[in-house]
Nucleic acid binder design. Sequence first.
RNA 1: GGAGGGAUGGCAGAGCGGUCAAUUGCACCUGACUGUAAAUCAGGCGUCUUCGGACUACGUUGGUUCAAAUCCAGCUCCCUCCA
Length: 412
Amino acid sequence: MTYKSEFLNILTERGFIHQCSDFGALDAKLMEGPQSAYIGFDATASSLHAGSLVQIMMLYWFQQTGHKPITLMGGGTTKVGDPSGKDQSRKMLDEAAIDKNIDGIKSVFAKFLTYGNGKTDAVMVNNNDWLSGLNYIDFLRDYGPHFTINRMMTFESVKLRLDREQPLTFLEFNYMILQAYDFVELYRRNDTILQMGGSDQWGNIINGVELGRRTEQAELFALTTPLLTTSSGAKMGKTADGAVWLNADMLSPYDYWQYWRNTEDADVGKFLKLFTTLPMSEIKKLEALQGQEINEAKKILANEVTKLCHGEQAAKDAESTAQQVFEQGGVGDDLPTIDIDLSQEVNVLDLLVEAGLAKSKGEARKLVQQGGARINDVAIQKADAVIRKRDFEDGYIKLSAGKKKHVLVRAA
RNA sequence: GGAGGGAUGGCAGAGCGGUCAAUUGCACCUGACUGUAAAUCAGGCGUCUUCGGACUACGUUGGUUCAAAUCCAGCUCCCUCCA
């Protein structure tokens, strides 16, 4: 199926779309001229992670195709906590923590979107601005009648909690009402007619669409992305070591590059479409690669994705370091580095812990016993081995745990 | 408010007086095979260790006992039914 609007065509072609409340009407609306759409982001951490990347890319394309994206920070709703997809209540965050998180998140958006005052410039808003001033009684009288408990009970997020016999507080129960209100508020302020989000947000978004029709006689639209998992079923953006953060101070561009480089074969094409801006013709060629050749596609994927988030130079540095480390068995500048005092000998186990390659000495010991710990690519034989100054041939050694984790250790 | 049931390692979920640092599955880590992939196979998976063992752990506080995740009591939280 093809559309008149460039935006919907690109999104469809690249696999962004899961559901839309009304494709035809939205398509027509987008052809009328620049429109405004928003996506809401929670402020539960001081950075977004790769799981949010799909939404960010969607806003990117929205702007690229001549429209106005709005990033809504959930300063107000974060105080409430979205129960969607959560089997437990979230911890309550206080206002100071939320503000701090918002500051961290803002810097990420600036890399993908152009902010300003122009017609198609992106705008950042915080729903705390209007939610915190609401009067409870007035709000209930104005908006309460538009929601029925009967219907709210049918929502996935609510059912999940009830089915699992887990508590759902009234506070969380209100989240969907506040999110619906956000949509209407943005319609009033910015003529925002479209809310996008992950497929888990469908219910919440539709609530906003309906509330807009009832209170403003407005035709609002919902557009959601498929829930992204890797082919192995893991959630996007999570690794054993934690989330794949988009802020460089929480995850180095090198590690970010590595995350994408390690994409499973089956996901390469999908990720190229979603997370890079490469033309489709090129992606088609890349995803057709088979066997060992697909590694080239993975490198391009890592380069492109890192470039978008951390800039061209960071992507190049990460790539060259990866090449030196993995293809030539050497070291690169981008490797994590620690400085070590060598006035006396250092036990390898302590060094492994110090370098962050093992959580405890016991773990380090196991690593050595299993042959997973290496110095300059030579397996450490004994757990009681020590490191001395003369082991540092060029003033550094490469310390490795497993095949992928390497740390550069320098003599201080 | 009343009556029952429950709280175990990252998650799920066994154990129900010593043989329990705790079965099993998932997740995770390492090795082999490979392509920094997947699948498969092998090992590991509380902390420390002079590798003998020591220490801390089964919601929480006490108690019974030579010995408690296991029995008893108080407390906290959760669930179900009744009001």
